[in-house]
């Protein structure tokens, strides 16, 4: 068996040309959490690992005019602790603070976390609710993908084999908006989420909801929004009745999966509970 080459490009262009050279046979490694796991469990046997560890300038968090920009190589722990993120959206910092454990957060990058497309993860639901998009660099061109179109299925994204996620952009929230993230662990507190709910709501001067986005993750293959349920809120005060109606609609419309953390039946119930609780939190904020 040939040893696996460990390649260390110093920029994304070089990384992509290395990907092209190795066709389907190379694997990108950023923080290393998921790639090392797959290597150790012999789920992958690439001819080369293309490490992004020597690419500088992509571990950044910047609040720009159009929103928050986070470089793909930023560690989850740095996002969690960033004052810029906390100021931009406390719920986003909180979301990153509840991912796995402190060791994983010290190691894992936001680009790696999203590209792994693990359904039982925390950031995808919150970022989807925040209407985030990702910058992607390819051999020929760069493109932007809305997170709502990024996750295609279990461990599958819209990235082409020779594309790399380079940056995440989260549009600035109006000052009248608020966000919440609810992670529900059903077994051990230390487990992965059974249900993840990210919610963002904006309110007009009469405390009526002008915009609402709720994304449910971990219970479904990819983060899901139910637009019909969201629009129920538009122009209305988030009363208990309305909150319950939206939560019911989410529960009814989503088709959750079954795993060791809960059956589809239970997850439908928990989607109702945690959509409700997330809405109560964003409502309460105002």
């Amino acid at each position: 068996m040939n040893p696996i080459k460990f390649l260390e490009p110093t920029n994304f262009t070089e990384a992509i040309s290395l990907l092209d050279q190795h066709a389907d046979d190379a694997k990108i490694i950023a923080g290393g959490v998921s790639v090392t796991l797959m290597l150790q469990q012999k789920l992958i046997a690439p001819s080369a690992l293309i490490s992004l560890g020597h690419i500088s300038n992509y571990a950044f968090i910047r609040h720009e005019k159009d929103g928050l920009h986070i470089g793909a190589l930023t560690k989850l722990r740095d996002i969690e602790r960033s004052d810029v993120v906390k100021k931009f959206c406390p719920a986003l910092a909180y979301t990153f603070s509840v991912v796995a454990n402190v060791r994983v957060r010290n190691q894992a990058t936001i680009g790696g976390n999203l590209s792994a497309a693990d359904y039982a993860a925390d950031p995808p639901a919150m970022l989807t609710a925040l209407d985030a998009r990702v910058q992607v660099q390819g051999a020929e061109k760069n493109r932007e993908i809305h997170l709502s179109e990024f996750f295609l299925g279990f461990y599958t994204t819209a990235l082409e084999p020779n594309e790399i996620l380079t940056e995440v952009i989260i549009p600035t929230l109006p000052s009248s908006a608020s966000a919440a993230y609810h992670k529900y662990t059903s077994i051990s507190a230390e487990g992965r989420p059974c249900v993840a709910v990210g919610a963002v709501a904006d309110f007009d001067n009469d405390r009526k909801c002008s915009d609402l986005r709720i994304a449910v993750g971990a219970a479904v293959e990819t983060p899901q929004r139910v637009r019909d349920a969201e629009t129920l809120a538009h122009g209305s005060t988030l009363t208990d009745e309305l909150v319950a109606a939206i939560a019911d609609e989410y529960s009814l419309r989503l088709d959750p999966l079954t795993d060791v953390r809960g059956s589809a039946w239970y997850r439908k119930e928990m989607i109702r509970v945690f959509v409700k609780r997330a809405l109560e939190e964003v409502r309460c904020d105002r």
Binding site: F6, I29, G32, V33, T36, L37, L39, Q40, L49, S51, G53, R77, A100, N101, V102, R103, V104, N106, Q107, E190
Partner: peptide, 27 residues
């Protein structure tokens, strides 16, 4: 555990705890 769950392999890299089992030495 071999999957970063248990922390028996914790080491500090630049002062931060990481899982030795989920880090390649090359990194």
């Amino acid at each position: 555990c071999g999957i970063g769950m248990c922390g028996a392999c914790t080491v500090l890299v630049d002062g931060k705890p990481i899982s030795g089992c989920l880090t390649l030495a090359e990194q």
